[in-house]
Design a protein around this nucleic acid. Structure first.
Lengths: 346, 346
DNA sequence: GTTTAGCACTCTCGATGTGAGAGTGCTAGC
DNA sequence: GCTAGCACTCTCACATCGAGAGTGCTAAAC
């Protein structure tokens, strides 16, 4: 085991690494020395390229499926590529405008935005997309409403700050008219406005039996909403992923589906993205996530600073088009954040 | 081409067909004459069984992958099986109770019910589950509410008969207080209660500018809700399906994913189920659906008679456990219908 | 010192061949 | 009408083999 003399990569060496990776991303087959010379009209001989490749392999940027195949990038190679070689290209203006337009048509509805974001990401980045519902600080009550459905059944509607609305049916022990319900709702609003779940629970002793029941239901719904925060996941474009050549073997395909159906891994990943913020590129699980060994994630946080945050991103094979994914994810995250800041601004 | 003399199936012949199908469902490999004799301790010889099998094959109930493999059921064979041979077994009481309990815990929320239904179906029938949101007759307005978010932003909440709630943010051209908004909402409620979208649209001329805007938004939301009716699909358990041996080849797996991601085929299927009602078993596309050639559906309508209806069911390989699927689908459909009749009863 | 030409070497991949095994259809006898 | 026996067919797993691709190494050229 000999230690390489220098880890400085020459420009030519970088070029070769870049070309190998680009070519491998394009074709999904190992790249030989002759191939990249011809494809990119380099005026150095295959032998030289081979030397450089051997150098890159010694340092772990490339690898060899077997003696006489071309080179394939390693995770380290991809990482170097996305960090140093890829360059930043923004989404073309036309594309930005189209996407922006789609979102503005979607009528200020968080749920629709998330669905749309998943669809846009999947389509533009040609991968599987993933959008989590945003998590906010413990919610405070804005308004409750009681609406009679029929004599012994009422609808309880909860409005939280940040425009979240949730409803639930409430069975009444004795029939009540809409007028009675409205009167009670008005009273409760007066008492509860601006309080969080714990504070509302504290007011319960001393209320009438029916008000107490409403209060219980409200607390319960708020607790659920806070717990369910950030747990909803919107997906799209699974097919894009499964039709990639690396997933022709059913076992890999199944792993992907399992990854997306089971929540644990995604949850762990998302919570990390939420913590660290910015745009994260996770390549092949980075040694820490066994189940992500064959895929890469491009994930970003979106939301409003200090108030609410979710994660969105794209899942692709290791040889995904990182440049495209990064630009789309960044743009959509920014767009969603802008849209939401309207709802959350005080 | 000789015409078979009699199409009456003898009891013994039925037994053999039943055993072949059961065995094939269990093992996913062609079933030989010797195998079923030994497995089920029949005291007839393999040769006799072969004769019966040949008879069944002549009439299209069984087929042959190649000369020296065992028999495999055809679509016609499966159909005969589910109609005549399978028998009706209800879900065990314990299982019914567990499922019922899960649903009653889910707090009277349609969305949660659908999600839960998908999870239960997928898990109990070991297949991919599919639940569409119910479609109801054109909706009538029950109540509107306007809630101030901040000076120039309000939340418009719509309650329809049947307990559907939908909200949207409304940007105000001039700042308004909660009192003003409440006053306007009360007036609009008085005017619009019980009307459908067209009727509300008719009242718009003559309203103030702001009321007009609210009316536009309400109509728009109602139109969207009616259009989006029955278009939401909840899925679960895709992995159950993809791990079946018939889907080891990536192309079949991809077809399944495409089937579930693209909407057209499912939509067509669902609308047929909604029309015909009851419980439908679609085996291998029945010649009409090319894309369903390799799968079977067990689907049922759920909802409240004449008021609201959706479809739910299970997707499995041709050799799915039809008995189990049928009993689970029937039970869950009934349960959902019962739960909903509470919401929709007048 | 760096680059290049030449060449032997290695490994995959597809085509071809082979034998065991499974299951059948057919025929003749019970 | 049922069954035993048998020849037949086809798949599947395994081994063999040659073509092709791409490498690493060495020695010569720049």
């Amino acid at each position: 085991m000999e230690i390489p003399e220098s880890d400085e990569m020459t420009p030519r060496c970088q070029t070769i690494l870049r070309l190998v990776i680009s070519e491998y991303i394009r074709t999904a087959t190992p790249v030989g020395s002759k191939a990249i010379r011809e494809l990119y009209h380099l005026d150095i001989s295959p032998a030289t390229i081979r030397n450089e490749m051997a150098w890159l392999e010694e340092r772990g940027y490339l690898t060899h499926p077997h003696t006489s195949a071309g080179r394939v990038p390693t995770e380290k190679g991809y990482r170097y590529f996305v960090e140093k070689l890829m360059g930043e290209n923004d989404l073309p203006t036309a594309e930005r405008r189209t996407i922006s337009h789609q979102f503005h048509q979607a009528q200020l509805d968080m749920e629709q935005w998330m669905r749309l974001a998943a669809a846009v990401l999947a389509h533009r980045a040609r991968g599987a997309a993933l959008v989590t519902s945003p998590k906010s600080a413990p919610s405070c009550l804005k308004h409750v409403e009681l609406i009679s459905i029929r004599d012994t059944l009422a609808l309880l509607i909860l409005v939280l700050y940040a425009g979240v609305v949730k409803q639930q049916v409430l069975a009444l022990s004795t029939p009540m008219t809409q007028e009675e319900l409205s009167r009670i709702a008005a009273m409760l609003n007066h008492r509860w406005e601006g309080l969080n779940e714990a504070a509302i629970a504290a007011t319960l002793p001393g209320l009438s039996e029916f008000e107490h029941r409403v209060g219980d239901a409200v607390c319960d719904m708020m607790r659920r909403l806070d717990a369910r925060n950030a747990t909803e996941i919107y997906r799209d474009g699974l097919l894009n992923l499964l039709s990639q050549p690396e997933f022709v073997h059913s076992t890999s395909a199944q792993q992907i589906v399992r990854l997306l159906e089971e929540r644990q891994i995604i949850d762990a990943l998302v919570s990390e993205v939420l913590q660290r913020g910015g745009l994260q590129i996770i390549i092949g699980g980075e040694g820490r996530w066994q189940d992500l060994a064959e895929v890469s994630f491009v994930l970003a946080r979106y939301g409003v600073e200090d108030q609410v945050a979710g994660a969105l991103g794209v899942l692709g094979p290791l040889r995904m088009r990182y440049d495209r994914a990064v630009s789309v994810v960044r743009f959509v995250a920014q767009l969603m954040s802008d849209l939401m800041s309207n709802l959350y601004g005080r």
